[in-house]
Write a protein that binds this DNA or RNA. Structure first.
Lengths: 175, 175, 175, 175
DNA sequence: AATGAATGAGGATTCATTCAT
DNA sequence: TATGAATGAATCCTCATTCAT
């Protein structure tokens, strides 16, 4: 998986092939196929790992801010998400794209549920939405998507993105 | 180009290869290479065409609403964009991804400039932004990205997306 | 033919293709095929032209030196040949190689005959050879081949080649 | 490599393609590419092998004739070279041409050095040359080139070539 | 559990040549 | 005499995957 992440980051999806991964990992290609049914299985594993990390990061933010204002919690969430996209941006992007291609259902887990619940509470409490769950999804998707877009197309603007996202989210939530 | 769009839509980027395109177009593969230097040239042409269409659609909306309220104009823009993504959603998505891969500069043209100008005016007039151009970019990118996400992951929710996007944009623009 | 020579010189045999020639000549590929049966026909024409030029150059030298010493005549011939290889060395080489491939018989003509005759006289007069014609062929082939080798592998040594060739030829002819 | 040599000899460079080689070798084309990076790598390997053989043959002659007269040594060298060109003349020629195309440096090795040294001694001892190394190069290149020319254009004369080459070389070396 | 070696099935691109007009 | 447009047939190379050991 380390080798896979490395190759995926360095060469993108185009340059990602099983032989390269095996070579980088220092194992025989056949060994690789003993642990992963096929190429996509590798990506799925990577995706799972990645989702897990993101989930943990978000949960941490949520846990740390039970008493704070909504504004502070939103900001903390945004900062955490941006921070997560600073580490290996290309890997991040490629994985996101492939997640789409693999039509992976969102891999919902217990942790996810807790996060969802917390967020749903925000939404419900903050303002009247036709469908809080949908609105929440939009907020999450929007934050992620905008961060991705900035990372890919205007990386140098990543530093001043947080306040804008905060304004976007708060403006949406407030009546 | 028609054949290319067809293949790209039906089979995605993975299944998009020059032989298939030529076969679908009913011409010899070599003929295809007489009009397009290489595989990417086809995608670039498609992208240009697509960008042109989008541009025209947006310009039309802008031209039609000079006297209207900002709210109406925002809504018209959102509706137009969603409508544009209804026609061939998969093609749309694949092209967007490949645009990223090809690192295509935004293909700015005169038409683009006019749109940008109009939007910049909105932003400047509507509220105080640190950098109106950046905020505008965020709004555009956000709208597009959220629409894409909905198309891909919750297509059935596309019908109720417009009001939410409107609320998101207006909330951001309003102080 | 000019275009052909140009391409052959610039791109070598590998890069020499009929489409390129036609493009360089500014005519349609089909027109090219109206004057040359096929690709090889172009090379054959070029080869003929080239042989003709060489022949003329050698004949000129021979004509100019009827009264001179053999040594002077040998030297003049060598100088002329080296000079001929200075003009378009790469074209020269490629043509020679292809002549071999096309298994072209030496294109003997009247002019050739006269040259041969003159050279045969030298040989016969200069020394006793088992087969003067063969020896003459060896001398010619040797001069050409060595010049080619120098042009290709040690071009900067071309300037000091003449005396060595002279010594080689005279040493061979003298008993 | 055997298959490659076979194809190269039978079909010349024009007819030499990786599929044919793989087919002849009885392996899958992909296997071939596991051992050779690309087409040229095959030729390079062949060339190296060939150079090695030639080197060994020449070294053997040199080793065997330490006490003999220069004339005998020259003759032995010539005979060895001609013999080397009798075995697979076409392969020989094609390889030589491609060596030129690949702009391969002369693949100098220790063995080479020893041969060079021996020859340089001959030259230096035999006669006064402006540049013994250059003269030696000329002699070698000339012998090879003339043999090639005879092989290609007058193969039946190969049998009576040795005495003429001997005369050529000795005449050149002797003052 | 590991690996050396192999391979089927593509897939992008090129080029000599033709033909209707 | 010229040309626009087409094309059959290669040709180099890649990659996911398998299998005997």
């Amino acid at each position: 998986l380390q080798a896979s992440a490395y190759i995926l980051e360095r060469d993108g999806w185009e340059g990602f092939n099983t032989n390269r991964v095996a070579e980088r990992a220092g194992v025989n290609i056949a060994s690789l196929y003993q642990y992963f049914r096929d190429k996509d299985a590798i990506v799925r594993a990577l995706l799972q790992e990645h989702a897990e990390q993101t989930r943990r990061a978000v949960a941490r933010v949520l846990d740390e801010s039970p008493g704070k204002s909504m504004r502070a919690r939103v900001r903390a969430l945004i900062d955490a998400t941006i921070a997560a996209h600073r580490v290996r941006p290309r890997l991040h992007r490629v994985l996101t794209e492939e997640a789409m291609r693999l039509e992976l259902q969102p891999l919902t887990t217990d942790a996810d549920e807790r996060i969802d619940e917390a967020q749903r509470q925000w939404m419900a409490q903050a303002s009247s939405f036709a469908d809080p769950a949908f609105s929440m999804w939009i907020v999450n998707a929007g934050i992620h998507a905008i961060i991705h877009a900035v990372v890919n197309e205007r990386p140098h603007d990543l530093d001043r993105l947080a306040p804008e996202l905060e304004r976007l989210v708060l403006g949406y939530v407030k009546r």
